[in-house]
Design a protein around this nucleic acid. Structure first.
Lengths: 224, 224
DNA sequence: GTCTATAACGGGATAGAC
DNA sequence: GTCTATCCCGTTATAGAC
């Protein structure tokens, strides 16, 4: 369908620019130059800069989250209803990593776009992020609650968000000097991540006041 | 010293704006409005928008990193040269959290600024981040290598950067709907973080190919 | 559906008065 | 040191021709 080749080219280019420069740092005119498209075409097809961001996010996030759920269901079925923490974490983390591995440069751009988006302001971003922490998050927390019955649900929810923090950082910095992901060994990184995080998810909750009180010091170091 | 009250007010306001809107999303004119200062004053005192960002980052990062090292040395001394993973993690994580706890709203803004900065492009940001991952990171990895001799240094370095990922996300989203940090119980969050991460740091490295091969599926979910 | 042209505005930076 | 005034550029968005 060569009909909407323009639409496609706009979306592909927007993805790259938003990923590289962020929302505020991206200009529609920059996109038009790279996509060899006129400024008006963007407004015709997407309405506004913010709606273009929304369309870009939806195209990436929807299939990734769907794959997360599919892998989770698969893991639950394979384990007869009680998959291991490792299997649950794999289902959560792998869809993003597979995207990067299989889509090459475009996957890298999509990754950086996704990771960066979480620190962008605005209602469009908030809407997409609510999706991640809505039903999807509940499904994964349900599964974790079965695998780790000793840790309360509220704590598991908090820990899952720590996992989100790592994957977000990993995505945002893919292909940069701060890369957490070896692009030549994505599968190996997935294994390292799961091996690193599974014991953390399982760790017993701290008894109140158990931490060595290192915190008390440091009055006003950042005054000046 | 009322002499450089203007300098101060500019820097304080810049900190808030950069934290709220990011670098590209911040305008010097917005800062001048809030700081009740003229546009030219910013250029007189700081030269350019990017140099203003650099000054803002330095003011925050330098004392925090100094405090990290101080706490690490303290922990090493207290433990006779071999502090626990928990103590090392506390020294790394607490300076940021103490800042938020003790500085109130300004601490929150500084936190969001710090967290957000890591996803900003540009040379100034890269320079500051290199500082974090230079000598400072090596000192902490040295300490971890003593506490966890079974895990190779390279793996410990990678894991420490996963810790950085979490603290970065936590800072960037402090006071937002995605907050990982309970502002009314900062100490409790510190304990939870340490309890969550210490077993992860200690976990044995995975044998090659040990992960359940969940990854193979998903051909091109994000095509469209 | 795609273009040109332009409106309407805000951005960073600077010169020069005080 | 701090201000006013201005330069010059890029921005989003839209109107209207083709």
């Amino acid at each position: 369908m060569p009909r909407d080749a323009t639409r496609q080219r706009i979306l592909d280019t927007a993805e790259r620019h938003f990923g590289l420069y962020g929302f505020a740092g991206t200009s529609l005119r920059g996109i038009t130059r790279d996509a060899r498209v006129n400024v008006a075409a963007i407004h015709y097809h997407y309405g506004s800069k913010e709606q273009l961001l929304g369309a870009t996010m939806d195209r990436i996030v929807a299939p990734v989250n769907a794959e997360r759920l599919r892998l989770l269901d698969e893991a639950i079925a394979a384990a007869g209803g009680a998959p291991s923490v490792e299997a649950i974490l794999s289902a959560f983390l792998c869809p993003d990593l597979i995207l990067i591995r299989d889509l090459g440069d475009r996957g890298v751009m999509m990754a950086r776009f996704s990771g960066r988006s979480s620190t962008e302001p605005g209602e469009v971003v908030a809407r997409v992020l609510r999706g991640i922490f809505g039903d999807l998050g509940d499904r994964f927390i349900d599964a974790l609650a079965v695998a780790v019955p000793d840790v309360p649900r509220s704590e598991l929810a908090w820990r899952l968000r720590c996992v989100v923090a790592i994957i977000t950082y990993l995505l945002a910095n893919t292909g940069t000097g701060l890369a957490l992901l070896d692009l030549d060994d994505v599968d190996g990184t997935a294994e390292r991540l799961v091996a690193f995080l599974a014991p953390a998810i399982r760790s017993p909750v701290p008894a109140a006041g158990s931490m060595a009180e290192v915190a008390l010091a440091m009055a006003g170091g950042a005054a000046s």
